[in-house]
Amino acid sequence: MSAHALPPLQKPTATTAYTLRQAAQTYVGRTVLTIGQLAIRSGEILAVVGPSGTGKSTLLRLLAFLERAALGEMTFQGRACGPDWPDQPARRRVTMVVHPPQLLRRSVHDNVAYGLRVRGTRQPAQEVAAAIRQVGLTDLAGALAPTLSSGERQRVVLARALVLRSDVLLLDEPTANLDPGNVGLIEEIIRRRNGDSGTTVVMATHNVFQARRLAQRVVLLLNGCIVEIAPTEEFFQRPRHPQTAAFVRGDMTY
């Protein structure tokens, strides 16, 4: 792999959550993601934008250690993700919320308690109740989760991730197909968690307005490649790449 010849452009430190270099992911021979290099800072909200099928979810799954890149190098919190990666403690520092939301046929409470239970917490009632309160579902704690409305379901899966207090939160389309009330509520929860706990948030969205409202940096993916990564203001006000400008204008919204 020629990647070894390249000097590391950004040295992984305590302030770097992830670095990826020359990373590529392929499914049955088709390359779906090629990342020349990408560093994700600890404590930032990074929005990954781009049209559907452009590799956003694949990138999130790599960061969640749910998949291993076919090629390239990756570090997490300063450690190289070697062949025996991920170990269970590292995996449990990162929580991804997949899209569409996946709920268990159990109560809201039991859904939110799931991650704590698999970690061996016997009576997680207090933390669970607090997380459910945070997403405004206290009255529905006993309800069967899959019977809720789509906005409520999205809030359940968010609470289920929040309760774990992981270092990194990976959110795939956290507000897709939701009404403005729910969108505002969920965005506020994400913002607050990031502000209060310094949780690193990487969120995939095809909603550029959401990226602008929430993120400190934005990265545009097109056909599995990074077109531009920049601080939010710069990304929207002075995009360097014509494709970014087009995407921001909405000419490329699918």
Partner: peptide, 17 residues
């Protein structure tokens, strides 16, 4: 739904769980 399994894994579940 097969998509449930990666979600459970990311919530910290082991293979057995």
């Amino acid at each position: 739904d097969p998509a449930l399994r990666p979600q459970l894994r990311s919530l910290g579940a082991t293979d057995r769980q």
